Computed example of a mutant assay.
Amino acid sequence: MKAKVGDRLVLEPTHPGSPRRVGVITELHHDDGSPPYTVRWLDDEHETLVYPGPEGRVEAGHR
């Protein structure tokens, strides 16, 4: 998985009834765009450090 600042990280739920999470990548921690990422979640504007698993995907953001 590779990303750039401004891309969206989408985490699909791993349990029935859990919500999908969508956030904007605000910081990379490796020059090659590999995880982990600092992500600002769209639902609550909270920022967290994320190591996405197989439920995650990166979508190109607006640059």
Rank of each mutant, 00 (worst) to 15 (best):
M1D: 09
K2Y: 02
V5D: 04
G6R: 00
D7Q: 03
D7G: 08
R8F: 13
V10A: 05
E12C: 09
P13D: 04
H15L: 11
H15S: 12
P16W: 03
P16C: 02
S18R: 13
S18A: 15
P19S: 11
R20E: 13
R20G: 05
R21S: 13
V22T: 15
G23W: 00
V24F: 02
I25K: 13
T26K: 14
E27M: 10
L28H: 06
L28Q: 07
H29T: 12
H30N: 15
H30M: 10
H30T: 12
D31T: 11
D32F: 00
D32T: 01
G33Q: 05
G33I: 05
G33W: 06
P35Y: 05
P36C: 06
P36V: 06
Y37W: 10
T38Y: 02
T38V: 10
L42A: 07
D43N: 15
D43F: 11
D43H: 14
D43E: 13
D44K: 08
E45I: 02
H46T: 13
H46P: 03
H46S: 14
E47M: 06
E47Q: 10
E47C: 10
E47H: 05
E47D: 09
V50L: 08
V50D: 10
V50I: 13
P52L: 00
P54F: 08
P54N: 07
P54H: 07
E55C: 09
G56A: 08
R57C: 13
R57W: 09
R57I: 06
E59V: 15
G61Y: 02
G61F: 06
H62A: 13
R63M: 14
